[in-house]
């Protein structure tokens, strides 16, 4: 679709010498290299390293060298790949690929600092949220069709937790959208993060809610019940090995890059001002906050997560929204 449209719009730019359309290469470069696939996957792996390093330092450990996440994925690709007896072979093979595709597609809508997103249009914020939701559904299916009791318990927990954090997350981002009076990520960026924010209090409420729900979205401690190692091994991913697990790992890292990138773009002032560099700095900052949160608490039981989300976080996020509506008049 995208390629088609662009080509129609730029038919005049076809190079007459060899009859080749340069915009196709340009688009492919954007989708596959920067700011698309390669960039987001590497950003995700880099953020994984940042997270692991900070987590390790907080625990008085040394932590991995910077290239460790890449090595982990490479090694997984070379490992034996097993489909368990009770699993649905079709789902088992294709879901990890869909997972990665969905998260990478979500990133195509996210501006990398001042560098425009690959595909930007009014309402792209909704599309990103929809694709992130789809990622959770895929995680559920991954666990459900893996034919393992741990996978099933994990899958059910994943959707239960989804019900807990999704509403506050959307509400927090909606607060920003209301303040900016737009559903377009780049417009929200331009209107709320440039210049001194007029409604600091409302922004802060939304930011706090967004960070906590993002922690739940990314299944990190204290909201890691769906993947709780000591309880249900690895939850939905228990039966996955080799290449398929590598795809899932990449998808999870990408999901992290999408979530962290989205929060950075919408809330922090650096991406709009310092461009790509500011974007990366902001993602590191947000990751830092998430890592500190991960290091300082124990895991919640799944029912505690739900109670916490509906009793405390949701009213808080609703308050942010109401305030946003009031101050915007």
């Amino acid at each position: 679709m995208l390629l088609e449209k662009r080509r129609l719009a730029f038919t005049g730019s076809t190079d007459p010498e060899n009859g080749f359309d340069m915009t196709v290469i340009n688009d492919l470069f954007k989708i596959l290299v920067f700011p698309g696939f390669l960039f987001v996957v590497n950003l995700g792996l880099f953020l994984e390293w940042v997270d692991r390093k900070i987590y390790a330092r907080l625990q008085n450990r040394i932590g991995p060298p910077w290239y460790q996440p890449w090595l982990d994925v490479l090694k997984l690709f070379s490992k034996e790949d097993v489909i368990p007896e009770g699993a649905s072979s079709f789902m088992f093979t294709w879901l990890p690929v869909f997972y990665l595709a969905v998260t990478v597609t979500a990133f195509l809508c996210i501006p990398v600092g001042a560098y425009a997103a690959v595909y930007s249009f009014p309402g792209d914020l909704i599309v990103v949220l929809f694709l992130l939701t789809l990622a959770t559904i895929i995680l559920f299916l991954l666990g459900w069709y893996s034919g393992s009791p741990f996978g099933r318990v994990g899958a059910v927990r994943a959707v239960t937790q989804f019900l807990a954090y999704e509403v506050p997350l959307v509400a927090a981002l909606l607060t920003q959208a209301l303040l900016a009076d737009s559903w377009s990520i780049s417009l929200v960026m331009a209107r709320t993060t440039v210049g001194f924010p007029r409604f600091v209090g409302v922004h802060l409420i939304a930011l706090a809610v967004a960070l906590i729900s993002l922690q739940g979205k990314l299944l990190r401690v204290p909201f890691d019940a769906p993947e709780a190692e000591t309880e249900i091994v690895a939850g939905p991913l228990t039966e996955y090995t080799g290449r398929r697990l590598a795809f899932i790992r990449l998808a999870e890292r990408t999901e992290m890059a999408v979530g962290v990138g989205l929060v950075s773009d919408l809330f922090l002032p650096f991406p709009a001002r310092l461009g790509v560099f500011g974007f990366v700095i902001s993602t590191i900052l947000v990751t830092f906050v998430l890592s500190v949160l991960r290091a300082s608490v124990a895991r919640f039981r799944i029912e505690d997560t739900t109670v916490l989300a509906w009793k405390y976080i949701l009213p808080f996020s609703a308050l942010g929204m109401v305030l946003a509506i009031i101050v915007r008049g």
């Binding site: 907080l58 625990q59 008085n60 450990r61 401690v221 204290p222 890691d224 709780a228 190692e229 000591t230 290091a295 300082s296 608490v297 124990a298 895991r299």
Partner: peptide
């Protein structure tokens, strides 16, 4: 006990 309830920081400190 810290590790079993997902509190790995306590795990690392106690073992250190």
């Amino acid at each position: 006990a810290g590790h079993e309830v997902g509190f790995d920081t306590l795990f690392m400190y106690a073992w250190r």
